[in-house]
């Protein structure tokens, strides 16, 4: 589904990603871990088109998307969330999710101005869909509230809901459990499994090892921009390179 070939990214003289090649198979929950500064978020930015690699290719569903704009990559079925939450704070929860559905709409500006039936029909269908998505995250009761009023954990969930609203084939999730308490994290794990069961492929960055090891079928470990290990959580956990660079002796 997603194929990275020889990705290199330089910031000035600093090589942040070094000849990175990876493959994410359809249907997986794929984990990307590594110490701070390893290049995980940079890699997400490159995959979603927010930043261009110095060299290398990103292939998504057979298309080379390396030089596509973020919006056209999104329209091809890639959703993402951000490490520092980027919800639309002044919009309601429902409006946040509806904004995420932008590409699913088809009606034209003319239909908008004339209030044609296609517009009313679409708005109605989308609203129902949006409520269904909010329901996965137990947020339907707050649909009309302003997004800013949510708790930190709920804001993360809303962002995930909004990413899901784009109807993506692959969702990139950047540190979803950061700042959540243990019970919220637990709930989130359930929700991610639920999303995955609906057929969405998920690629996530996370520092909470319980979360990663419990969810992911495959894990890649980055250190200083290089892939140092790839495999099932069990394989990765006991890899000496990973223990030295990131997890420490007690992990295995």
């Amino acid at each position: 589904m997603l194929q990275l070939e020889n990705i290199i990214k330089d910031f000035g003289g600093l090589r942040v990603l070094d000849s990175l090649s990876l493959q994410v198979e359809e249907g997986l929950i794929f984990g990307l871990i590594g110490p701070n500064g390893a290049g995980k978020t940079t890699l997400f930015n490159i995959i979603s088109g927010l930043s261009r690699p110095t060299n290398g290719q990103v292939i998504f569903n057979g298309t080379d998307i390396t030089h596509f704009s973020p919006s056209s990559i999104a329209a091809r079925g890639m959703g993402r969330t951000f490490q520092n939450i980027r919800i639309f704070k002044e919009l309601s929860l429902l409006e946040n999710v509806l904004a995420g559905m932008h590409c699913l709409y088809t009606y034209s500006p003319v239909a908008m101005l004339l209030n044609l039936p296609i517009q009313r029909q679409e708005e109605k269908v989308m609203r129902e869909k949006a409520m269904e998505i909010l329901d996965i995250f137990h947020l339907t009761g707050k649909a009309q509230r302003q997004a800013e009023s949510l708790s930190y954990g709920e804001q993360r969930k809303l962002e995930l809901a909004r990413a899901l609203a784009t109807s993506p084939k692959l969702i990139l999730v950047d540190e979803p459990a950061a700042g959540m308490n243990p019970s919220e994290t637990e709930e989130l794990m359930g929700e991610i499994v639920q999303i995955n069961n609906r057929g969405y492929t998920i690629c996530l960055i996370e520092h909470d090892m319980k979360f990663v090891m419990g969810l992911c079928q495959q894990v890649a470990v980055l250190n200083f921009g290089k892939l140092i290990a790839l495999g099932t959580p069990e394989q990765v956990k006991c890899n000496p390179l990973v223990i030295e660079a990131y997890l420490g002796k007690d992990a295995c």
Partner: peptide, 10 residues
């Protein structure tokens, strides 16, 4: 509200 977030919504 957030141009970058809007762009990754397509």
């Amino acid at each position: 509200e957030d141009e970058v977030a809007a762009s990754v919504m397509g």
